[in-house]
Design a protein around this nucleic acid. Structure first.
Length: 847
RNA sequence: GGGCGUGUAGCUCUGCUGGCCAGAGCGCGUCGCUUACAACGACGAGGUCACAGGUUCGAGCCCUGUCACGCCCACCA
């Protein structure tokens, strides 16, 4: 037990209690508890790269409210924290900072040490994948230290001893094991296929990582030569640079303008290549001229046309986003090609327009347009479509099953399920899991090389699970020697890594000890809660469901709680590019963690919330009020444990009202409605301070009387309950107050429950007294007199039962309102109470 | 183009399966340093519940349509 300070303050609470919780292991998961007691949370791995803003804080707080509530309910909360550190942004920073680039063909150099400090190198130094990964990990380790400090300060009650990283050994092992099992089960396959490709990062990307952006472009009308001697055929395109990649023209089968042309041949401008005119239902008569050129590949529709119409490939865009040096088969290496070869697609576009213009191939002037273009969500150049060999996980075959799982999951809010539903219904390709990057989990496969030194992709060599994790760029498959690497008849490692989602889709398995701690895993999996933001339903939530179903045949959790966005005060989504990002550090410094959490609590599940410093101020005020009221209550005489129950009707009324609050708050939190629970508790607390506390203050000072003891016992009981009700929201303040007169942590104290003994108590005395004291204060305020002004007489009228309620609190009212005399008038049919106040100064007011 | 959501005091929001003379906090105004709290308290003024129809004894809440905003998705010529 501690001491009640003279002047309570919020300063220093975060440092003091943060250290204490860590030292005491307050939030440690207890492995000894049975499965039915466990509440396991699949918490989003904290992002170390990218910009940090209050949006993160916002949703993490929501989870923490629920975790703290469940812990107080007596559950063994499994609340691990992860670091999501594998991925592209980290690679980018390492490349730029150290002036290096990864070359997976190089052997590991154990002695490699980057120069200290940033390197400004034009040509980046090539280093091996293991060396590169080492640098990435050094960088993320340092970042994680900084971030951990912040998250700790925020008061997240995660179990830091369960921390994992998505690039760490456990994660790599789980990720590779999971993949090998998919491979063995036939759910993972490789294919050579056109895929969306980011030319900056030079990697394939999956459907889920794409976003549309409106960008300026030009609509160009180009003339194709018609079969026979007919007039030119005019197509409209925004990608004239792909003319050499054109393999056909397409129109809708019902389009009368072009019906007769289907089956004939057209000739491309600039290159004179003959291409067939074909019909397909996806050709839109309303767009452009109704006649479109099919290129390999300008967009995803091209891919569909190419596949369904069995067209040849004439690819011209290379993996770095430039047109290749040599034209594809069937296209002449003429002067036009010489103009375009080697150019970026953007530059080639401009040149193609000029070429068309000078050769008369242009039909009308190019028209500036704004149109949606697909981008990789982290990229800044439009995606191209290139053909490459990639690994996929089957999704389309399992669509129905995945839809069923989505329906079996408890969604909060429920309408978020439609996001999932639509996504699964709209899937058009399997999950592309391979990435041509380096700081990720390596694909754990090797391939044999035949006698000609060619890679035999059809017979991948998988390691035994016991060897995991492996890095095929340095590890050697069983049955081979290190010297066999790259040699005809030898082997080569798969150069790629997994998509980060392929690993983070296993967070329940990684955190829960899948195949590594079977006893624990059986206790925590499937988990109870998956909190996350709605923009990653299609990725994290979806993929986790997929992996859990493939591996365990079950949903990974029973409930998904989807949080909303944080928007800026103008209700715009917060993003770095808009420059409207609010960082949590500044807010923490200015208002404190409890205040920030209070603001976050105002965001209902699934709804967007604006950054509102006003709410943070209110939260801070609430915390200070709690400290001060606790100081007052605990500063009164302590009647000890033998004081018995409160006897006064007003005291029992207050406690009975508080019991109702407890019941409501509990119900709300059971439904994960942290906002309603806080609102209820907070509202009670303020009226408790404003009315009840003021009413009984005088009596509470009386020592040695039963009435005084009753007030003091009630005050302490009410404080005890309210501190526990608010503990999930204001963990620091509540812990501080708790420590003044209680042992142990409030966060391990039992959640309050209504007392049966008070269930029948009449709540009217407090309500009636509050009304009367309000009327008295109003009278004084309207008379512009201080509140200490005496009242000569207060006459209360109303129904008899309510008058009795007032009488029960008359002594307290007299003291609090300085009322000399009370009068009562029965008005049996009145709606409520009416109080006439005669001030001692002879002035008068009525309400 | 499809879908989801939102629209209530100047601002941020509550209002559960329809009964309210419509609530809270912030902000604003007036008063007050009353022995927990002036980083405070008391009191008060603020609203055609987006719009138009409809159902009902009765609608902020239900139905239909319209408008505005946000987000998600879509084959982007």
């Amino acid at each position: 037990m501690g001491q009640v300070p003279e002047r309570p303050s919020l300063d220093g609470l975060e440092a003091r209690w943060g250290a204490r919780w860590e030292a005491d292991g307050t939030y440690r998961f207890d492995d000894g508890r049975p499965r039915e007691d466990v509440y396991a949370i699949d918490f989003p791995p904290l992002t170390v790269s990218g910009s940090l803003h209050v949006g993160h804080v916002f949703s993490y707080c929501h989870t923490d409210f629920l975790a703290r509530y469940q812990r107080m309910r007596g559950r063994a909360v499994f609340y691990p924290v992860g670091w999501d550190d594998n991925g592209l942004p980290t690679e980018r920073r390492v490349e730029n900072y150290h002036g290096v680039r990864c070359d997976p063909s190089l052997p590991y150099d154990p002695g490699f040490e980057p120069p200290p400090g940033p390197v400004k190198a034009k040509a980046k130094r090539p280093i091996s994948r293991p060396n590169f990964v080492e640098l990435c990990r050094r960088l993320t380790d340092a970042d994680e230290q900084v971030f951990e400090t912040l998250w700790r300060q925020l008061g997240l009650s995660v179990d830091w001893s369960l921390a994992y990283t998505t690039i760490g050994e456990r994660a790599r092992r789980a990720s590779q094991r999971g993949f090998l099992r998919l491979l063995a089960g036939g759910e993972a396959y490789q294919a050579e296929a056109p895929t969306l490709w980011d030319v900056t990062y030079r990697t394939a990307v999956a459907q889920a990582e794409i976003e549309d952006r409106e960008v300026p472009g030009v609509a160009v009308r180009a003339r194709f030569g018609a079969d026979a001697a007919g007039p030119d055929l005019v197509i409209e395109t925004t990608r004239p640079e792909l003319l050499p990649a054109c393999v056909a023209l397409v129109a809708h089968p019902d389009d009368d303008r072009y019906r007769d042309l289907v089956g004939t041949t057209a000739t491309t401008p600039l290159f004179g290549v003959p291409v067939p005119v074909v019909a397909h239902r996806l050709a839109d008569p309303g767009k452009g001229t109704g006649l479109a050129m099919i290129c390999t590949f300008g967009d995803l529709t091209d891919v569909i046309w190419w596949r369904e119409l069995r067209l040849p490939v004439r690819s011209i865009v290379t993996r770095d986003g430039r047109l290749q040096a040599e034209p594809p088969a069937g296209v002449p290496a003429n002067a036009a090609w010489a103009e375009l070869a080697g150019q970026t697609t953007a530059e080639a576009r401009r040149r193609a327009v000029e070429l068309l213009r000078t050769t008369g191939g242009l039909a009308g002037e190019p028209r500036p347009v704004t149109h949606p273009v697909k981008f990789y969500e982290n990229g800044d150049r439009p995606l191209e479509i290139v053909t490459s060999r990639q690994w996929f996980v089957r999704l389309l075959d399992h669509r129905e099953r995945l839809l069923e799982l989505g329906r079996a999951l408890e969604w909060q809010p429920p309408w978020m399920q439609t996001r999932y539903e639509h996504w699964v219904r709209g899937l058009h390709s399997d999950w592309l899991v391979s990435r041509q990057r380096f700081f990720g989990v390596p694909i754990p496969l090797w391939y044999p090389l035949n006698e000609a030194g060619e890679v035999d992709h059809e017979h991948p060599i998988a390691p035994d699970e016991a060897r995991l994790p492996v890095d095929p760029s340095t590890d050697v498959p069983d049955g081979y020697q290190a010297t066999d690497r790259g040699r005809p008849g030898g082997f080569t490692g798969d150069p790629d890594v997994f998509d980060t989602w392929a690993t983070s889709s296993l967070t329940p398995q990684i955190a829960g000890g899948w195949e590594e701690d079977p006893e624990r895993f059986a206790k925590v999996f499937p988990m109870q809660l998956r909190p996350q933001a709605h923009e990653i339903i299609r990725t994290w939530l979806f993929y986790t469901t997929v992996r859990s179903d493939f591996e365990h045949g079950t949903l990974p959790w029973s409930r998904a709680a989807i949080s909303g966005w944080v928007v800026d005060p103008d209700r715009r989504k917060m993003s770095k590019s808009k420059g409207n990002v609010v960082t949590p550090t500044a807010m923490l410094e200015r208002y404190g963690a409890d205040a920030l959490r209070y603001w976050a609590a105002g965001g209902r599940p699934g709804t967007d919330t604006a950054v509102d410093e006003g709410q943070m101020r209110v939260g801070r005020r609430l915390a200070i009020k709690l400290l001060n009221s606790a100081r007052f209550i605990l500063g009164l005489a302590d009647d000890g444990p033998g004081a018995g129950h409160p006897a006064a009707a007003l005291d029992m009324a207050m406690l009975a009202g508080l019991d109702a609050v407890v019941a409501d708050a509990t119900q709300a939190l059971e439904a994960s409605d942290w906002t309603a629970a806080l609102e209820r508790a907070e509202r009670f607390f303020w009226s408790f301070c404003d009315d009840y506390l003021e009413l009984v203050k005088d009596r509470a000072y009386q020592e040695g009387t039963p009435a005084g003891a009753s007030a003091r016992v009630a005050l302490r009981a009410a404080l005890d309950i309210q501190v526990r009700l608010l503990a999930p929201y204001l963990p620091y303040t509540c812990e501080e107050v708790w420590s003044w007169w209680r042992d142990g942590s409030v966060h391990l104290a039992p959640w309050p429950e209504p007392a049966p003994a008070r269930a029948a108590a009449d709540r009217r005395p407090l309500e009636a007294a509050s009304q009367v004291i309000a009327a008295i204060r109003r009278a004084k305020s309207q008379a512009r007199l201080p509140l200490r002004t005496p009242v000569a007489r207060a006459e209360v009228s109303g129904p008899p039962a309510w008058l009795d309620a007032v009488r029960a609190a008359e002594a307290d009212l007299a003291a609090a309102g300085r009322v000399a005399a009370f009068g009562y008038r029965e008005r049996p049919h009145a709606e409520g109470l009416d109080t006439r106040v005669e001030l001692a100064t002879a002035e008068e007011a009525t309400t």
